[in-house]
C-alpha cells in the first residue's frame, strides 16, 4: 500500500472511530502540482487526502484558530518534521494542548515521501535530536548565506535594502506563519505606530527586523513565509541566519520539545552577568 493509501486509511479510521473530530491535511490545489489544506470531518472526506512531494505547507498554523481546540476534542493533522517542531513551540507557548493533537507524520526526500513513526508530538524526540545534529542547507542556499556574510555592513545593508524595497506590506509572511499567532500584531498597533506601514526603506526595515526578532529561536524553517511572499524576498535567508545564531550562541534548536523555554525570555540565575538576579 502506498503511503498515501495508508494515511487515507488511518485518517478515515481516526474519524470514523470518533477519536478525532477533524483531520487537517492536503487536498488538490489550483493546479495538479499544488496542494491546499483540506479539512476532513468524515471518513469519506479522508479519501481526498494527498500525501506526496507537493505537500509543502506547514499546516500547524490552523491549530491555533480561535476556539478550534477549546472543546478539548482531538484533531488529526498531517505534519512534516518542521510542523512537529512548530507544534512543540505552540505547546511550549501555551497555545495548544499537545495531547489534543494526533500527528500523521511524514517526511520527503528527493521527491519520495515516507511515513514517520509516532502520533504524539512527544513521540518524535529522537527525530528532533537527529534534526538538530544534522542541520542541512542546500548548497545553493548556503552559498548565498556565505556570500551575504562575507559582505561589508554597507554592502549587506544595500543588499537588504534592495530586497526589502520590494516589500508591499501585505503581511502574507505573517499570516502563513504558525508562530505568528498573536491576536494583535505589533504592526497593527498604531498607538504609537512603532512600525511604519508605508513601504519606504524605514518602514520596510522596521517590519522585517521586527519579524526576524519575533521569530528568532522560534522559526522552524518550514519555508512558509518564503513561499508566501508575493515579491520573492528571500526570507529563508533571514530565518537561516537567526537559526544559526541561536544555535551557536545558546545551543537552541527551536521546537525540540514541549518544555523548551523561549530563547529571548529565559535566563539562568547563575548567569555570571550581575544584572541577572
Amino acid at each position: 500500500m502506498s503511503i498515501q493509501e495508508q494515511y487515507r486509511k488511518k485518517a478515515a479510521e481516526l474519524l470514523s472511530s470518533g477519536e478525532v473530530k477533524l483531520v487537517i491535511g492536503y487536498g488538490s490545489g489550483s493546479t495538479p502540482d499544488r496542494r491546499r489544506a483540506l479539512f476532513a470531518r468524515t471518513a469519506d472526506d479522508a479519501a481526498l487526502f494527498h500525501v506526496d512531494a507537493a505537500c509543502d505547507a506547514n499546516l500547524s498554523g490552523y491549530l491555533v484558530n480561535e476556539g478550534l481546540l477549546s472543546d478539548k476534542k482531538k484533531i488529526g493533522i498531517f505534519l512534516k518534521p518542521e510542523g512537529i517542531r512548530s507544534v512543540n513551540i505552540l505547546a511550549a507557548e501555551s497555545q495548544l494542548d499537545p495531547d489534543q493533537i494526533v500527528i500523521l507524520g511524514f517526511t520527503e526526500e528527493n521527491g519520495t515521501v515516507s511515513g514517520l513513526q509516532g502520533t504524539q508530538a512527544s513521540d518524535f524526540t529522537s527525530l528532533m535530536t537527529a534534526l538538530k545534529e544534522n542541520r542541512t542547507t542546500s548548497e545553493k542556499e548556503q552559498a548565498l548565506v556565505d556570500k551575504i556574510e562575507a559582505m561589508t555592513p554597507q554592502e549587506r545593508f544595500a543588499f537588504w535594502q534592495a530586497e526589502f524595497e520590494k516589500c508591499i506590506k501585505c503581511y502574507a509572511c505573517r499570516q502563513v506563519c504558525p508562530m505568528c499567532y498573536c491576536k494583535r500584531c505589533i504592526v497593527d498597533n498604531n498607538q504609537p505606530q512603532w512600525v511604519h506601514t508605508s513601504s519606504h526603506t524605514l518602514g520596510n526595515f522596521e517590519w522585517n527586523l521586527v519579524r526576524a526578532f519575533h521569530l528568532s529561536g522560534r522559526c522552524v524553517e518550514c519555508g512558509g513565509c518564503d513561499r508566501a511572499c508575493p515579491v520573492n524576498i528571500p526570507l529563508r535567508l533571514i530565518n537561516r541566519r537567526m537559526a544559526n545564531e541561536v544555535l551557536d550562541a545558546f545551543d537552541h534548536f527551536s521546537g525540540m520539545n514541549q518544555n523548551q523555554e523561549p530563547v529571548l525570555a529565559s535566563f539562568k540565575k547563575d548567569d555570571p552577568e550581575t544584572f541577572i538576579l
Binding site: E93, Q95, C182, P262
Partner: peptide, 9 residues
C-alpha cells in the same frame, strides 16, 4: 496572547 514569555522573563 497568553504565551507566558513575559512570565518567564
Amino acid at each position: 496572547s497568553g504565551c507566558w514569555g513575559c512570565a518567564l522573563a
